[in-house]
Amino acid sequence: MATNTIARSQHKENFLNPIWKANPLFILLLGTCPALGVTTTVENAIGMGILFTFVLVGSSVLVSLLRKIIPEEIETPAFILIIATFVTIVKMLSEAFLPELYSGLGVFISLLVVNCIVLGRAEAFAKKNGVLDSLLDALGNGVGYLLAITSIALIREILGTGTITFGAVFTFLPKIVLPILKFDGVDLSIPLFAKPAGAFIVFGVIEAIIGVFTLRKAEKEAAAKREAILAAQKAKAAALAAEKAKTAEAAGKEDK
């Protein structure tokens, strides 16, 4: 029972850690190319996130299943081949069923092959862990990445076009255009944010905001460490004083 709960909390950790604390894009800074390249609209970003999650989950599970069969010398080429297979599957599926998404993402679907996160999870996690853990880790990373690029896209689409459009890429949904910065003939959008330069600005500002929190956390940790050292020193000094007093007392007794 106890081991069961430990295992369960470990599973939960594997899934939740990459979403928030070790987000592949915002904290580890991996997979930056598609994060800047396809985030002009929210729908493209969501589509990219879903395709990315599919490739990551598929390749992680397969790598984890084959981890005892693949010889160590040809590990990396074998991983790349597995990933490329899943990317080809995703490419063909999206071309057949979501042609708008396929043309919107363009060459970035093929570039999933060289995405550092996918190869990184295979090398760092899936080849050492069981199937269930690898699946959860891949899902967590996929969802974390999806949320990260969607938030960049949200900022860029609202600021860049003044509206959010649904149904242009996922054509099975009804087409909805939400006007957010555009109303009654007033247009508050800044087209720069839809351009490449805007992507760098949004990403830079997000990183700076995250920097505030990591700095605060680091300061807190440093303060806690200092306090712990001080407390240890105090305890040591007290113990020394007690020892001294004891020996002095003993000496005094002997004198008597």
């Binding site: 490449p196 830079g204 990183e207």
Partner: peptide
């Protein structure tokens, strides 16, 4: 500023280069 040091300021630099 401390939280802009390193990558964030580099990204803003890249944005200016892109402009």
């Amino acid at each position: 500023p401390k939280n802009w040091k390193g990558l964030p300021i580099a990204l803003i630099t890249a944005a200016i280069m892109a402009m």
